[in-house]
């Protein structure tokens, strides 16, 4: 059941990351209404209080907003949501580079590797 979580980070932070990813990829569109806290909690396989905490934090960051009786919505597209995608891309690349570094490869080596792989892909496509 539920989303995948790692052991060492508080769940609400991992939930926030999961939701940011959905917003960044457009899986949750700007202005879209969110399911209820309970529904999201069941989907993720977490406690409703934990989900509530994650949503409240995302509201504080301006990625979600609440209308008093109508529920919670994804923020309309603006700098915050636009910046999100960039932020996520950078964090993925950084993780990749950290892994390369721990194997003894520099940024340059990593770039060369990526180029090689992309050329291979192109050749496959032909």
């Amino acid at each position: 059941m539920g989303w995948k979580f790692s052991d060492d980070v508080p769940l609400y932070q991992q939930i926030m990351d999961g939701i940011k990813q959905r917003i960044a990829t457009g899986d949750w569109a700007p202005g879209q209404k969110l399911p209820s806290v309970r529904e999201l909690a069941v989907e993720a396989g977490v406690n409703p209080n934990t989900m509530q905490k994650a949503l409240a934090e995302l509201e504080r960051e301006g990625l979600l907003y609440a209308k008093r009786t109508a529920g919670r919505f994804v923020a309309e597209r603006d700098e915050i949501t636009e910046g999100l995608q960039e932020e996520m891309l950078q964090s993925y690349v950084k993780e990749f580079l950290d892994n390369m570094e721990s194997l003894g490869y520099s940024l340059k080596d990593a770039a060369a590797l990526l180029q090689r792989m992309s050329q291979q892909e192109e050749r496959k496509g032909e």
């Binding site: 052991d7 060492d8 980070v9 508080p10 769940l11 609400y12």
Partner: peptide
């Protein structure tokens, strides 16, 4: 709380 355990000890409850 489960969050406290994760934050203070960097561990799951199971661990």
């Amino acid at each position: 709380s489960v969050d406290e355990i994760r934050m203070e000890k960097n561990k799951s409850v199971d661990a």
